Simulated assay, not measured.
Amino acid sequence: MSRSSDFDLRNAVTAFVVANTPLFLLRKLQSEESLIRQINESTSERALISKLKAALRTKPKNLHSAVRPYVYLVALANREAFMALKQFAGHHYEAYPWFEYLTDVILQTGQTTTMTEATLNLVLKPSIESKSQSQATASHLQLVQN
């Protein structure tokens, strides 16, 4: 199921119709996590890029075809396929006036719909302390480790 017509774009179309700014549209499309996940799970990155190029080459015939390039853009951003997105940067697409701007925003901010978990490792170096301070610090560290 990787045909673009198989994706339910109703919520994306609604967001597109009511969007008064490009960033509003971007936020709404990013919140369509199930749609973006469905696209990314059923379509390879290469196929998604091809679909995006094809969508950008044609003038939209209806609201679904008008929102489709923006949906594909968000799906690629969700994959963190920033190298792939760079090929679309700096190009103006007459039929899709917000596309260039949103591509630049995504590339500059690295904005995706996923959260990244980071691990922070701390190295504690001993310092010269009084005996009572050392015991308090050791007790605190023991509580933190438990």
Rank of each mutant, 00 (worst) to 15 (best):
T58F: 09
Y101T: 15
A19Q: 04
K125D: 12
A136E: 15
E117P: 02
R57D: 12
S139Q: 13
A19Y: 00
Q133H: 11
A95V: 02
G90V: 04
E100A: 11
A15C: 06
Y72M: 12
L107T: 07
T112Q: 05
D104E: 13
P126L: 05
F7C: 01
P69V: 04
V71S: 05
A77C: 00
I128F: 09
K53R: 14
L9R: 01
Q108V: 08
N40R: 14
Y70W: 07
N121K: 14
T112F: 00
K53D: 10
R79D: 02
E129Y: 07
N20K: 14
K131V: 14
V74N: 02
G110V: 00
S50V: 09
K28D: 10
A136I: 07
T103P: 00
T109I: 06
A55Q: 01
T43P: 01
E80A: 15
V123W: 08
E41T: 10
S130P: 00
V144P: 10
R57N: 12
E33M: 12
F88L: 01
V144N: 08
H64T: 14
T58Q: 15
A15K: 00
S5L: 11
L63Y: 15
Q133A: 15
A89T: 04
S2A: 13
A19V: 03
G110C: 04
A47Y: 05
P97Q: 06
K51V: 07
Q111N: 10
T58L: 14
T119E: 13
M83W: 05
A95H: 06
L26G: 02
A136W: 08
A118W: 10
T119N: 08
M115V: 13
A118F: 13
L48W: 00
K51H: 12
G90K: 09
Q111K: 13
T116F: 09
P97T: 03
A81L: 02
L9A: 04
L23H: 13
I128T: 10
A138H: 15
T112C: 03
S2G: 14
H92G: 13
A136K: 14
S127W: 06
T109C: 07
P69I: 07
R27S: 11
H92L: 12
S5K: 10
L56M: 03
R37W: 10
Y96V: 01
I39S: 00
R79H: 03
L107I: 05
V144D: 06
G90W: 09
K53E: 10
I39M: 07
Q145N: 14
A77H: 00
M115P: 00
T119K: 08
T116C: 05
F7V: 04
L35I: 04
L23W: 11
T109M: 09
A81R: 02
F99R: 02
S2W: 03
S132E: 11
S4G: 12
L122G: 04
L143E: 15
L141R: 12
V74F: 02
D8C: 05
P69T: 03
F24Y: 14
A136L: 13
T137W: 10
N146I: 08
N40F: 02
G110I: 01
Q135R: 15
T116K: 15
T43K: 08
N78E: 10
A81T: 07
L56I: 01
V67H: 06
